[in-house]
């Protein structure tokens, strides 16, 4: 038992690496603060464009959304990160992450917002427009607030996925939590940093998982 502790939760190694891992955690938080708002905004834009009901535009949006939902995000990220330099454009890893996440998450958030907008009864549109609100005012002051409430569980659940997805940034050497843990493990020849990083993810994300479960079961109960 003691031996297991030496390998997986070694107090000496914990005291050495925890500051480093916390820094990684900070980077993970910053990354999330960058990619989640970016995804929400672009997803909302995709859904709003969809609601314009222009046939050719909608066909284009379906292709866009399906294309990027079919692409594994890591493939997208590496394609951007390693592809751009070949055409003479050097981009920093963080920009590659931003572009890759934007393309990937806008598709997922877009689908969720679209479902939300479609769940708002048509009469709401007509009532709002007939009071003299413009299309944009109707969309963002009347429809989107109701739509958001209707798909809140899906939005939260997707946001959790996006935060978990920031681990991909470790592959392009951005020093977020997983990257820090891997480096520390390689330096200490010990599994403790990896276990510690996993525990950090668990402690921080577990409450969100619980929240999602509760929202989902509530949704089932309402039916």
């Amino acid at each position: 038992m003691n031996e297991v502790f030496q390998q997986f939760l070694n107090p000496e190694i914990i005291s050495k690496v925890w500051v480093y891992l916390l820094k990684g955690l900070g980077t993970t938080a910053l990354l999330s603060l960058m990619v989640v708002p970016l995804g929400l905004a672009s997803g909302l834009a995709v859904a709003a464009l969809w609601s314009l009901r222009m046939r050719w535009l909608n066909a284009l949006l379906i292709v866009y959304v399906d294309f990027f939902r079919a692409f594994p995000p890591l493939v997208l990220l590496l394609f951007i990160y390693f592809g751009f330099p070949f055409v003479g454009i050097e981009i920093p890893a963080i920009v590659a992450v931003a572009i890759g996440f934007l393309l990937n998450t806008s598709s997922y958030y877009g689908e969720i917002f679209r479902a939300g907008i479609e769940s708002v009864p048509r009469g709401q549109w007509e009532a709002a427009r007939s009071t003299g609100l413009s299309w944009g005012q109707t969309m963002f002051n009347v429809i989107v607030p109701q739509a958001t409430r209707n798909v809140l569980p899906d939005l939260i659940s997707n946001t959790l996925e996006v935060v978990k997805l920031t681990t991909l940034a470790s592959v392009v050497a951005i020093p977020e939590l997983l990257n820090a843990a891997r480096n520390a493990q390689a330096l200490t020849y010990n599994a403790t940093p990896i276990v510690l990083a996993a525990l950090m993810y668990l402690v921080l994300l577990w409450p969100v998982v619980r929240l999602i479960s509760r929202l989902e079961h509530k949704a089932v109960a309402v039916r």
């Binding site: 978990k164 997983l178 843990a181 276990v195 996993a198 993810y201 668990l202 577990w206 998982v209």
Partner: peptide, 23 residues
């Protein structure tokens, strides 16, 4: 179910591949 929904999949792969050999 909670633990594996909270952990990023890449983290799980790293644990199995890089941490399990220590055991």
């Amino acid at each position: 179910a909670d633990a594996l929904r909270a952990l990023p999949p890449l983290m799980v792969i790293i644990i199995l591949f890089f941490a399990f050999p220590y055991a």
